[in-house]
């Protein structure tokens, strides 16, 4: 009896320890970014959100990362508006006609798109939307981000729709609902948590992408936001450039930007959890 209890103890302790080891890197990242980034944001104050970054020679200035914030918000928003309707409609089709040939094609395409390195997506959009017009634009960046988002939204939404128990769908048809009503009022309603989770993860993914923006939005940080048809900065792009530079104060700004990105993530996930009520089936 004693040995059985002992085995149980050893098991519990080791599982707990392994779980801690698994989450440790996440907490380490959060901790490290906060330690390095929070003081920069505090020092910069409001200016950090409203000013453009200082030139490399003004080593004593912190300036702000307004162009990067504006660019990230604009491009992510436009990408969401493009990606969500396409991906959600495609997943509704897939869930309604799971054995249709088109479904098989869409599913295979989406799965491969998830595996494609995002820099490749950047190059494709460069060829399609940058080369012909001869300029880098925020819109091209947004389109590249939308392509990154689509397979995420599609996969999560399809999964959520397919996991709606059949019995609710039967009940909906049973009270005389038409097909579109069943999809919109019941299937999507029951699956709303999963759908929103997919959209949230896709938005987070888009906000964190650098590679698709390198040859599309390119980056521009001498003014806050030039418009959709001008090159645009993004938080990730700016971090990528600044952290590689030899300038101490640019490194510090990059850490502050990383912290801000982290805060944006947390806000995004908290809002999406709050916004959509739980559905218990």
């Amino acid at each position: 009896m004693v040995s059985r209890k002992l085995v149980d103890r050893i098991f519990t302790v080791s599982v707990t320890l392994l779980a801690l080891v698994a989450v440790l890197p996440i907490f380490h990242i959060i901790y490290y970014i906060t330690i390095k980034g929070l003081p920069v944001v505090l020092e910069g104050g409001v200016n950090f959100f409203t000013q453009i970054p200082p030139s490399p020679i003004r080593v004593n200035e912190l300036g702000g990362i307004a162009p990067a914030i504006a660019g990230t918000l604009f491009m992510t928003a436009v990408a969401t508006v493009i990606a969500v309707p396409i991906a959600v409609l495609a997943s509704v089709f897939s869930a309604e006609y799971p054995n249709h040939n088109l479904t098989k094609i869409v599913r295979a395409t989406s799965r491969s798109l998830l595996e494609v390195p995002t820099i490749v997506i950047g190059i494709v959009v460069f060829a399609l939307l940058v080369m012909p017009f001869g300029r880098f634009t925020a819109i091209a960046g947004a389109v590249a981000l939308a392509i990154v988002m689509i397979p995420y939204v599609y996969t999560y939404t399809e999964l959520a729709l397919l996991s709606v128990p059949r019995t609710y769908i039967e009940a909906a048809y049973g009270i005389g609902m038409k097909r579109a009503q069943v999809i919109y009022m019941v299937t999507m309603g029951v699956a709303r948590r999963g759908i929103v989770r997919g959209i949230t993860i896709a938005i987070a993914k888009a906000m964190g992408e650098t590679a698709p923006l390198l040859f599309t939005a390119f980056g521009a940080r001498n003014m806050i936001f030039g418009g959709p048809l001008e090159p645009s900065d993004a938080i990730t792009l700016m971090i990528y450039v600044f952290i590689q530079s030899p300038f101490e104060h640019w490194h510090r700004i990059a850490w502050g930007a990383a912290f801000l990105l982290l805060v944006l993530y947390l806000t995004l996930f908290l809002i999406s959890r709050r916004l959509v009520g739980e559905v218990r089936v």
Binding site: T167, Y168, E170, A171, G174, I175, V190, R192, V279
Partner: peptide, 13 residues
């Protein structure tokens, strides 16, 4: 109209 074997009120309403 129909009542089913498993109680299935719409869970999101």
């Amino acid at each position: 109209s129909m009542v089913f074997q498993m109680p299935n009120p719409f869970p999101h309403m």
